[in-house]
Nucleic acid binder design. Structure first.
Lengths: 203, 203
DNA sequence: CGCAAATATGCGCGCCCCGCAACTTCTCCG
DNA sequence: CGGAGAAGTTGCGGGGCGCGCATATTTGCG
């Protein structure tokens, strides 16, 4: 069912989200009006709100989509694989650095990075970002429950695993933004997940 | 420095937060206007925004305060105590059920509980709640760094520990609201923390 | 008691989010 | 292939909200 309609809708959604991100990184969250985003996506302001309930939602939309794919990736792993091995692979698969994407041609890498930091420092964005993480965790918990034969309603286990994975991703992201790209993301992710799977003993 | 000024300010803040919570539980988030909260606290609407930047912030304020106390409690534990023992105690200390508090005299326990659920289901609230958790985690990470002699900027370890604890608290809360008070909170918390400290092995 | 600082309040602006009612574009089936 | 109907877009308008600014009031202190 990928008619013209669906494709156009997806395109508009992506254009809006991308415009929201780009403009916010360039000018700052407060300085970007919904009208600007709509215009950048060649759409009426009213239409913006048909796709997203807020500026923050639009900006976070990409992160949300990517995070939700982790659960799908986990289901695709062979079922005889140990849980934490499968989780590690599923996460790496989604958070691998995408070649070429993620920067506007007009902006210098340095300016982009600092704009990104400023954007992620925005309180309104942080809340939305964490909410996106929570949504993704619900998906992931379901996948974990399937794989381990636990009950989503009665057992805390799948929720704990999902929350721990979310915590790892979040911590790695923050660390990466704080310390800069000295160490590649996949190494950091592997380290974080390994520590958690080891019970976080005092080093 | 606890002059009349400070005490009055704290009282107003508490009154506003409490009014926000009570009214939201009774009527629902959308149905409560800032004006109502201000009136319930005998304060002008403009003053509300001198204390809180949004309705959500006011509602979450109590949860935030409580969560931040965990770090303080951890510092107060004897330093020869094993890390996870100390953390368990510090968390339990803050999230122990408070006798008598937490309900308006006018409302039935059942109505209050269902109102609470509805309130916590509100997207805007969830974001703010998670943000509060993130703030508390920063405090907690600092306390963990002190205790374990790790570096907040260079090591992910203290952040991972704090995030894991936050995840545990969050999961327990959700489970408690989902399954009802069949099992006491302190048992659930103990179980969640124990599982994390054990590395979340598949059960 | 009286002044300086902190706080509370009133006013007004700009923006955001959404419901509603046309209007346009796509889909699907006879 | 053509027209009915579904789905998407847009303009309009309103209710609230968050906040800057100026003013009035209260508190702390000498």
């Amino acid at each position: 069912m990928s008619g013209l309609r669906e494709r156009k809708k997806a395109a508009t959604r992506a254009a809006l989200s991308w415009a929201a991100i780009r403009l916010t990184v360039e000018r700052g969250f407060e300085a970007v009006k919904v009208e600007d985003i709509a215009e950048a996506a060649s759409v009426s302001p009213r239409t913006f709100n048909n796709y997203f309930a807020s500026k923050a939602e639009a900006i976070v939309s990409r992160h949300l989509d990517r995070s939700r794919r982790v659960a799908r990736a986990l289901r695709a792993r062979p079922s005889q694989e140990p849980l934490w091995t499968a989780i590690g692979a599923a996460v790496q698969e989604q958070f691998a650095p995408e070649p070429g994407v993620g920067r506007s041609p007009e902006t210098s890498p340095a300016g982009w990075a600092s704009g990104l930091r400023a954007m992620l420092a925005e309180p309104a964005l942080q809340g939305e970002l964490l909410r996106a993480g929570a949504v993704a965790q619900a998906d992931l918990a379901a996948a974990v429950a399937e794989r381990t034969g636990t009950d989503l309603d009665r057992d805390m286990y799948p929720h704990l695993v999902a929350a721990a994975v979310g915590a790892a991703v979040s911590v790695v992201t923050q660390h990466f933004l704080r310390a800069g790209p000295g160490v590649p993301v996949d190494r950091l992710l592997a380290e974080a997940l390994a520590r958690i799977a080891a019970g976080l003993p005092t080093p």
